[in-house]
Nucleic acid binder design. Structure first.
Lengths: 164, 164
DNA sequence: ACAATATTGTTCATAGTTGAACATTTTTTT
DNA sequence: AAAAAAATGTTCAACTATGAACAATATTGT
């Protein structure tokens, strides 16, 4: 349990009453650092993907579609942690570029099965090259073991918030 | 330098030509895990802040304003890694709630100096309690040392992308 | 079989984000 | 001092994200 009073870094000048700032809380402080890094990399990736005419959201979707071909829009939405309407708006962009194929499920007329086209896979490979190059660059001072440890932390978090 | 052919996890059934998937690249794989965790926590935080009538972007701004009182909108934009127009649109929300005070700089008539009001600081403390409670919960299986190590990785990344 | 409930994907209104163009003011150059 | 360049904050148009309401289809309970 987090103890609110425990992490006080500044004093109120007027009354010397502690101003609680959780900046000494290692979990909080480092989480904030992570948010910043994620944002910075996101901006860099965004620019790096521009020549391929791809947005990050589109790339995320394509990565998922490659790993789980034939999944429904509902499945994809859950994996990407977005709403279904988001997927509805996202897919036409990929479809008109010929990167994606949608087939109505035969048994269940409500669901659409999603597949990358060959062209989609080719584009994905180009994008992954850009993506991995960027990640390798920014993480090249960190060992694979450190990355694994960080990834384990993150997977535990995702698992813990799974129910929501 | 990233070696494209090094990370191949799946074979193409038709031709047995390796399909390059960087899933075995520890840096890439764990980065993706981080993106997911960050999104999951973001959604949880968003809901947790709703009773306080605060958005995450607003909280981020308030945290920065608390740590760097009197900074300009330009400074705030750079710290938050967003454009200046974003700040222009964000601040009125805080100002009309009485959480923020803007003063024109005396020497430079272009810049606005930003300060949290007392009410703003009070609201911030409430929000931080919610925030730290969530972070402590999702990271409570990770030791402070692990969190510090992760934070160091992240600060190196942010530093590396500073120039952009 | 029939009604009630749940699921899937779409639509729509609202709100958030972005970058370019702009007005104002300051700094630098000539 | 005058002109050119840069910095700061605003406006605007385009794009993206979100959740609620909805239509169509499936599943469950009686």
């Amino acid at each position: 349990m987090f103890n609110y009073e425990q992490y006080c870094t500044r004093m109120n000048k007027k009354q010397d009453v502690p101003k609680p700032l959780p900046w000494d809380n290692p979990r909080f402080k480092n989480w904030v650092a992570m948010m910043r890094a994620e944002k910075a990399v996101g901006r860099a990736l965004s620019r790096a993907l521009a020549p391929l005419d791809l947005k990050i959201a589109q790339l995320d979707a394509m990565i998922n579609l490659y790993r789980h071909p034939g999944q429904s829009q509902h499945d994809l939405a859950r994996r990407l942690l977005v709403g279904r309407s988001n997927i509805t708006m996202l897919l036409p962009q990929l479809e008109t570029q010929g990167l994606l194929r949608r087939e109505g499920d035969r048994k269940d007329k409500r669901v659409m099965r999603l597949y990358l086209t060959d062209e989609g896979e080719k584009k994905l490979m180009q994008a992954l090259e850009v993506y991995t190059a960027l990640i390798d660059r920014v993480l090249n001072q960190s060992t694979p073991e450190q990355c694994d440890m960080m990834g384990d932390m993150m997977r535990r978090i995702t698992e813990m918030l799974k129910e929501d």
